[in-house]
Structures are given as structure tokens and as C-alpha cells.
């Protein structure tokens, strides 16, 4: 078993996180998050802290784009629990291009009253670190978190990522060019369309899709972290 663990991606990632504690970029602010114990690949998903999150941003590239809002919702024992939902605006108003605010239907007033970006991301990490984090297309959220905290791309984040987009690609690997946009996946699975888009609704939409994917992967067997992380 111990030998197998050498090849275990999650085990590797856990080690990376521990190692990061000695990095100069591991500030006092974020250190406690890295000290939290991460799930291992044979942990049962329904026993882990598990949050679906989504960012609304001005664009995909973090170098010249900014977070507008952060939303998320918890999954408790394979059920999405509205009680755990959260949503807040991020005050990046000084950088915001007018047109991207229109697309996201977020007004400058909402942003000015939002949280400072670093505070917002730290608060988010406090909610999600040490657990499983669900996103649709992991690069966006991961990279924006790293950029906000001044981390480098190679640095680990203190949680294990599940990505519904990668999982869907894997599930439909026999199709030539599967359409894995969140909207298309939902439509394909007969889920109700979400007309409005904001960080909370999208994190919820992602979580619903994940519950269906979990059934595809595990059927009625109790799901573990490893196989999902493999596909993310």
C-alpha cells in the first residue's frame, strides 16, 4: 500500500501542500489553511467538507482581469444544502472595464460595497481549505485565487479540486468533441435551465451536475475521492 501511495496523485498533492509551508510565499495569513489535513484518495466523499464555488470575473486571463463576485454552496452527504450557501461581491472597481460589468450584470455600486479582494479570497479559503472544492473549469478559479494571494502558478492550493468539466470530458471520452459547457451538460441531462447567471447560481448549477456525474461514476456504491480527483 505504501508503495502504491508513491504514485497516488492525491498523496503527492498532500505532500506538496506540506512542503509549501516552508515556502517564502506561504504568508502567516494563509499558513493555517495549509496546516489543515486534506482528504486522501480513499476518503469517502460524503465524509469530507465539500464546497462548490464559482467566480464571476471580468475575463479568463488573471493577468489583466479581476474577480467581481464569489459564490458557493456546500454539499453535505451527497446533498446540496442551501443553508450553507454564500455570495459576495469583490471590490475591484478601480480596474473594471465598463463592458464586462454589463455582461455580468453587476453594477459598479455593488462592487464598491464589496469586499477587498484579498480579504474576500482569504475568507473563501477559510471556508473551503482542507476539503474538496468543486468548480466547472478549474483553471479560472485556481488561477484567480493564486494571483490575488501573490502565489505562483506551480504553488498548490490547500484543497482538492474536482472539476465537472474534466469529469464530463472523461465520461464522454468516446465522443469526438463533446460539448462540456455547463449549460450544455445540464440540457443534456434534462436539468432545468438557469436563466440568470451569478456566482451562486453557477456554483449551484455545477453542484447539481456533479451529483449526476457521481451517479455515473459510482452508481450506488459509496463514492471515494481518488477516482473523482483522477478525472478532474
Amino acid at each position: 500500500m505504501e508503495i502504491l501511495k508513491l504514485f497516488d496523485r492525491i498523496e503527492k498533492y498532500r505532500k506538496q501542500c506540506k512542503k509549501f509551508l516552508s515556502s517564502s510565499r506561504c504568508t502567516e495569513e494563509i499558513r493555517p489553511f495549509y496546516e489543515r489535513e486534506l482528504p486522501s484518495s480513499d476518503s469517502f466523499i460524503d465524509q469530507c467538507k465539500f464546497t462548490s464555488i464559482d467566480f464571476e470575473t471580468t475575463g479568463v486571463d488573471p493577468t489583466d482581469n479581476y474577480i467581481l463576485s464569489i459564490g458557493g454552496i456546500g454539499l453535505v452527504k451527497n446533498s446540496i444544502d442551501f443553508n450553507t450557501s454564500f455570495h459576495y461581491f469583490v471590490n475591484n472597481s478601480k480596474y473594471i472595464k465598463k463592458d464586462s460589468a454589463v455582461i455580468n450584470q453587476i453594477t459598479p455600486e455593488q462592487l464598491i460595497n464589496g469586499k477587498d479582494p484579498v480579504v474576500a479570497v482569504i475568507e473563501l479559503l477559510d471556508k473551503i481549505s482542507g476539503g474538496l472544492v468543486l468548480v466547472h473549469c478549474k483553471y479560472i478559479e485556481m488561477n484567480f485565487i493564486k494571483k490575488t494571494l501573490g502565489l505562483e502558478e506551480k504553488d498548490p492550493l490547500p484543497f482538492i479540486v474536482f472539476d465537472t468539466m474534466s469529469i464530463e470530458k472523461n465520461l464522454r471520452r468516446n465522443e469526438p468533441n463533446p460539448d462540456v459547457r455547463l449549460v450544455s451538460i445540464r440540457e443534456k441531462r434534462g436539468f432545468p435551465a438557469y436563466e440568470a447567471h451569478n456566482a451562486l447560481v453557477d456554483s449551484l448549477a455545477t453542484a447539481e451536475v456533479f451529483l449526476a456525474q457521481l451517479k455515473d461514476l459510482f452508481g450506488n456504491k459509496r463514492a471515494t475521492v481518488g477516482p473523482v480527483a483522477e478525472r478532474s
Binding site: V76, N78, S79, I80, D81, F82, N83, S85, L204, A207, E208, L211, A212, L214, K215, G219, N220
Partner: peptide, 14 residues
């Protein structure tokens, strides 16, 4: 009401 809802997913035969 809206904030207390729990969502689950089930496949045929469940």
C-alpha cells in the same frame, strides 16, 4: 424556504 432546500440526485431504480 428557498434557503433551506436540499438538493439530491437519483438515477432509475434508486
Amino acid at each position: 424556504t428557498a434557503t433551506k432546500i436540499q438538493i439530491t440526485y437519483h438515477s432509475p431504480g434508486d
